[in-house]
Structure formats: C-alpha cells, structure tokens
Design a binder for these strands. Structure first.
Length: 464
DNA sequence: TCCCCTTGCACTTTTGAAGCGT
DNA sequence: AACGCTTCAAAAGTGCAAGGGG
C-alpha cells in the first residue's frame, strides 16, 4: 500500500495533497473558484456562461450533503475540468430518512437532476438490500477496515458506449443523530459525532467506456469501512453507531484528471442506508449476514463453527481426542441448510466471481523503478497505490481491463486532500509547507488524483 | 454497571503461483 | 514454447466471544 507520504518521504509527514490554487496554476479555470456558491443559486440562473468550472462545482456540491453543501468536495480531483456543454442545477438536500427502520424503502431515485440524460442506475442486489433494510442494516467497521455486505452492485444503462466514465462511491451521514440499539430497534441517542474526513472510493475500472460499464453490473464490493480516524489505508472513515447512506456517482470524463468533462450523475438507493457498528447489535442482522455472506459460511447452522459445533468441540477437547467425528462436521452445502437458496445478489455475485475468469496472460510490466512519473502512473496506477512490492498483475489500460464484476487486484490507496475552510466559498489556499506547488504541474506525485480502485480523501469539516 | 470497542480465534473463501499434461 | 487445467498455500474476509476502558 503506497501512500504519498511513503512515496515522497522527503515531503515529511505533513505533506498533504491539496486542491489547486487559482493563483498557482495558469491552467486553473477562474470560473472554478468563483463557481463555489451556495446551491440556492441554481445553475440555470447562472446560465451556460458560468462555464465548466461552475458545473464542476455544482457537481461537487451535489456530492455534498445538506450540511456540507459548501464543501468543495472532490475539488482537486476534478481540478482540470474545463467548460462543459451544460450546467447543472443544485441538488436537492438529502432527505432525512425516518428514524424507524424496517419500513419499505422508497424506489431508487437519482439524487439530483444530472448531466447525463437517459442514464439510469439500478441496484442489482436490491432484494438482498431490502431484506437487510427491512431488519435494519448494520455494517461492521473495524480499525483495519471491513468490507460492506451487501455490497453496492449496480447496473447502468443509457451511457454513450464510446465515451469514458468514472464510477465513484462515497458514504455520507443521513442525519445528525447518533443511534443506539434498544434491544429491539435502533433509536436516536444524542447528537452525532463531528464529521470525519470524506473519502471517495473510485472503482478500479475507472475510467472505462460506457460499453464497458453497461456490459455487466458494476460492483463496489471492495470498498472498506473503518472507524480509525487516522486510517492510513484510505478506507472510508465512519463513526460507529451512526446512520449512513452510500452514494454512487458517475462522471463522464476521458481520464481521472480529464480536461474534457462531460457531465455527472449521482445516485443513491434508500434501501442501502445502514448503521455502522463495531459489533452487530441486532441478532437478525447477524443471521442474515451469516446466511448470505459466503465468508460467513462457517457460522451457518450446519457449519463447523455454529454454536452447536463449537460447544461440541469444546466438549471433545475436554474429553480428549475423539475417534471418527465425521458427524460433527456437517457440510454447509448440505441440502436443507440456510444457505444458497437465501443467497441474494451478493451471494450470486460471489458465485459469479468464482466462475472461472480468464487471468491476465501477460501481467503489466512494472512501473519504472527510478521513481514515479505521471506516465508511469497512467500506465500502472495500481503500482502506486498497491501494497508495497505488489505490482499490478493486470493491465489497467482500458481495452484490456477486466470485467467490472471481477475482483480487481488493485489495492486501495488514497489521496489525502487539504480540507476546505469551515465556511463557504473556495477553499483557502493551503499552507505552502503542506502543499507542494509542483503537485499541480504533475509532480512529485504522479498525478493530482488517485488511481482506480483507490480512495479519494476529500477533506473534512464539521457537519453539525 | 453498562455500553461500546478491541483483539484473538477458528473457520471459509479468494487469489496467485507452481506443477503437470497436452 | 504456449496453453489449459489442477493443486496448494498464503492472504483475506467472516462472526464470535472474552476482556478492557470510559
């Protein structure tokens, strides 16, 4: 796992990648800076002359939740944005979900009017999500990072098959409350903790053509959640006992740092709302997870690690070595078990992933050893985010990119961005000492954006 | 005392490399 | 030599439960 500070130790521990500074880079569109406005002013009122910067900012605003609408989220990520053909209206606020869980979730809806007309997203494993949602979805967060289950798995239609798009995922607080399990249900219990750094997960296939994304469902199963505020791996940082809503963003852009950006669509699915926990509170959720998650197979009723079997093992240990014992190891695949028939979208996803997939015959060559460069980064982004010594085993260039549903070998990394000011408007120029000016010109960090399969840290600000 | 978090454990699945045969 | 298949071990991902801290 590479971290910019590891790649460039000379920059010191305080090195943080920051948003572009209008004064520091002539390529920085002035409209970008002036475009940071409160979304109450609609794009229409500004008109097309507002330019792409404003559009970009509107999108950034769209990425923000009601309380952080002035957060220049992903600002540096799209630092190179130029004029776009259309402007974008400010997004409606994320409506607060009813405090009571278990209600029928509303149908998926785009979070806002978007710039990708005709594009629609559907939640592939919606039934599984609904099943969890009906109980009250909980997601384990750990210091080391825990995957989401179910994972967000979507199908997209209406893309331009030739154009390239990025797929992003982030998680935002649903409301300003902390929750508490009251034995039977979740209830608000006090104010939420201060908001943590916003991070965005970039799908490893990004950027890829519309045809690629539409070929099969896009899975975000590699996203990891953590409660470690100092997480060095770039996982999405959450507070325990808070309610969150994953969002998926689709950006039309030729590259991650595209200079020609064509629009954005942002989606959320109410049934994917969840409460982050460090240990499951609702036993029904535990049972659902065990039943649906292949990794938890060992905890199923007829698995080796079910309570009955664990107790039996303890007894056997106490009694000493046991002969035979085949009956003690029931197979999770035995008919009648609570397993495969209950495996919803994600189980199918896992099965699909288990299907033989052609491995890359020719792993991409290792990036230059003489030090990172933008070109090398473009060719082998994973090498810059992957685990140390773990070079990419697949060619990240698009034509050879593997299918979306397939696990990508990229390890996650992140780009830590200078948070904007607590107020509104364009983020103040970061301290010179903490933001290398040449970053904007392409060095020392390969490119001012994280690579696919990585996370983008978009700064933090108090939400409440 | 209660609530929540951390940690270690045992288990399964995933992944990539090695070996083998065609 | 190239390719496809199988096998194996390590890594990664699970929930459980004990223990600790506020």
């Amino acid at each position: 796992m590479y971290h910019p500070r590891e790649l460039y130790p000379s920059l010191g521990p305080g090195y943080r990648l920051g948003p572009p500074q209008p004064g520091a880079d002539s390529s920085f569109p002035p409209a970008l800076a002036e475009g940071y406005r409160y979304p109450g002013e609609s794009a229409e009122t500004r008109g097309p002359s507002a330019g792409g910067g404003a559009v970009a900012l509107d999108w950034l605003l769209m990425l923000a939740t009601p309380a952080d609408l002035d957060t220049p989220k992903l600002d540096c990520f799209l630092s190179g944005i130029e004029a776009a053909p259309r402007t974008l209206a400010a997004p409606p606020p994320l409506p607060l979900l009813p405090p009571a869980l278990g209600t029928e979730p509303a149908p998926p809806a785009p979070e806002a009017p978007h710039l990708l007309p005709g594009v629609s997203l559907s939640l592939e494993n919606q039934e599984l999500w609904k099943e969890f949602s009906s109980v009250g979805t909980e997601m384990i967060i750990t210091k080391a990072g825990r995957r989401m289950f179910p994972a967000c798995r979507v199908s997209v239609t209406g893309l331009d098959p030739e154009a390239r798009y990025l797929f992003l995922l982030d998680v935002v607080p649903v409301d300003g409350a902390r929750y508490r399990w009251q034995g039977r249900r979740w209830e608000p219990s006090g104010k939420a903790e201060p908001r943590l750094p916003d991070r965005v997960y970039i799908h490893p296939d990004s950027p890829a053509t519309g045809a690629h994304w539409m070929r099969q469902p896009v899975s975000f199963h590699r996203v990891k959640l953590t409660n470690s505020t100092l997480d060095p791996h770039g996982h999405l940082i959450l507070h325990s006992m808070h309610k969150y809503q994953p969002r998926i963003h689709l950006v039309r852009a030729a590259q991650l740092c595209s200079q020609h950006w064509g629009g954005v669509a942002s989606f959320r699915f109410p049934e994917t709302t969840f409460i982050s926990v460090t240990a499951y509170q609702n036993p029904r959720i535990t049972q659902l997870k065990i039943a649906a998650n292949p990794f938890a197979k060992g905890f199923r009723e007829n698995g080796r690690n079910c309570k009955r079997e664990r107790d039996a093992r303890v007894k056997r240990k106490l009694r000493g070595p046991e002969s035979g014992g085949t009956e003690a190891y029931g197979s999770a695949d035995m008919p009648g078990g609570p397993c495969d028939s209950t495996l919803g979208g994600d189980a199918r996803e896992s099965e699909a992933e288990q299907a033989p997939a052609p491995r890359e015959a020719a792993p991409a060559p290792a990036p230059p050893c003489g030090g990172p460069s933008a070109e090398a980064y473009l060719l082998h982004p994973a090498a810059f985010h992957g685990a140390s010594g773990h070079l990419p085993s697949r060619n990240p260039s698009f034509p050879e990119a593997p299918d979306s549903g397939r696990p990508a070998p990229y390890s996650a990394a992140f780009l830590e961005l200078q948070p904007g000011p607590g107020g509104s408007g364009y983020p103040a120029a970061p301290p010179a000492a903490s933001f290398a000016p040449h970053f904007l010109q392409g060095g020392p960090f390969p490119l001012p954006y994280p690579g696919p399969g990585s996370y983008l840290d978009v700064g933090s600000k108090p939400m409440y």
